[in-house]
Amino acid sequence: MKGFQVKRLDKNDVSVLYPAGFLDAHTVPQFESALSELVENGRYKIVVNFKDLDYISSAGLGVFMGFIEEVRNNGGDIKLCNLSDRVYKVFDLLGFPALFEIYNQEAEALEKF
């Protein structure tokens, strides 16, 4: 059974998170702590690359809502990229494309900072 992992790569002043596997209420604390660590270290320019994410439920979406205000208030942003169709559909159902910048490729998201 495939679980969940999240990796981080810093590209100059932008941090890129790579969540992989299944992001649900069980695995969401791992993703939350990866974002917390960035915010605690004052790294507010964040890209989340979903290329290896197979599944997301509202628990995963809730994490973005929990962090985005603090990140933007500090001059940063959370930009999203490489969403598969099935992951994008869940974001779309809850109106996230109006609230978050979503890009096809990571390079585009990085350029926008």
């Binding site: 439920s57 509202s58 628990a59 979406l61 809730g62 809502m65 929990g66 985005i68 205000e69 869940v90 159902l93 809850l94 109106g95 996230f96 109006a98 609230l99």
Partner: peptide
């Protein structure tokens, strides 16, 4: 989620989904 992203209840999001 447009007006209160931070306060939106995730349980409410689940039912909405």
């Amino acid at each position: 989620i447009n007006h209160s992203m931070k306060n939106a209840k995730v349980g409410g999001l689940g039912i909405h989904l």
